[in-house]
């Protein structure tokens, strides 16, 4: 247990609402190892994003958490804001759903990658620029050395998501959380991004938490799967277990909704 990179135990998130406090995440536990991928699936509103945000201490104001979140044995839950800031984007990075609005339209993409890098690693502007170019090459942006000085609107949606991934990986995090990183992209681009993530993961050994409501995506990328329903972790196990022998009614419903998955599992 202790050799696991990232351990979440009995994580509960309570949000204040007009109807009183609501548990949007209830007693969620999972582990992610180095070079390991955990997929979190569930329908919209099941608490997937809240789980991810709780890990980074990015919950909306007034939220309460309990349980334990440990990275390399270090407790993150209840840490001070300053402490968490040094973790965010450094040891744990996050990629968001919408690549079109995840980049600040005011700055060139290079500058945004550089800023993220220098915030944690310091160093000269020139060194950071080199890091930015290398990061963009790594996610296969053609002609990266020239394109660092372009603005976000000069890139396609898929390229922007690649840039977000480049930014997330530039500080070599030990854990990357991708919250529906391909939902806004079309299917072929989706496949490329997934391939890229898998490839980068084998190169760097980063642990990956992949959030989606697309079971087809999960089956192609994740080793372990957590299924969530209305904040409850209804099923947790290896991908084969969950897909071939779903123990929970909810998982079966999800699987039935995606006929393609059955074909794949049959193989």
């Amino acid at each position: 247990m202790t050799d696991e990179l990232f351990v979440v135990e009995d994580l509960t998130v309570t949000l204040p609402t007009s109807r009183g406090p609501v548990d949007v995440v209830k007693d969620v536990s999972f582990t992610v190892g180095r070079d390991d991928t955990l997929g979190i699936v569930g329908e919209s509103g099941s608490g997937k994003s809240m789980t991810a945000l709780a890990v980074l201490g990015l919950l909306p104001p007034g939220a309460r958490t309990s349980g334990s979140v440990r990275l390399d044995g270090r407790e993150l839950l209840g840490q001070s804001e300053g402490e968490l800031r040094s973790v965010r984007g450094n040891a744990i990075s996050m990629v968001f759903q919408d690549p079109l609005s995840s980049l600040n339209p005011y700055y060139t993409v290079g500058l945004q990658i550089e800023e993220g890098y220098r915030a944690h690693r310091g160093g000269s502007k020139r060194a950071a620029r080199q890091v930015a170019i290398e990061a963009m090459e790594r996610v296969r942006i053609p002609d990266a050395a020239r394109r660092v000085d372009d603005y976000p609107h000069q890139f396609s949606g898929g390229q922007r998501q690649r840039i977000m991934i480049a930014m997330a990986l530039c500080c070599s995090p030990s854990l990357l959380i991708a919250d529906e990183p391909t939902t806004a992209l079309d299917v072929t681009v989706q496949a490329q991004i997934l391939e890229l993530l898998a490839e980068l993961q084998t190169q760097t050994g980063t642990g990956l938490i992949f959030i989606t409501h697309d079971l087809a995506v999960i089956s192609s990328i994740a080793r372990r799967v957590l299924v969530m329903c209305a904040g409850d972790p209804v099923e947790y196990g290896t991908a084969e277990q969950v897909f071939s022998d779903p123990r929970h009614e909810y998982t079966r419903t999800l699987l039935d909704a995606v006929p393609r998955i059955d074909d794949e599992v049959m193989l």
């Binding site: 609005s101 339209p105 997330a168």
Partner: peptide, 14 residues
């Protein structure tokens, strides 16, 4: 509320 602000926060910005 734009995602780039959230993204900046998630990468450790004050």
């Amino acid at each position: 509320n734009r995602e780039f602000v959230e993204a900046a926060r998630a990468s450790g910005a004050k």
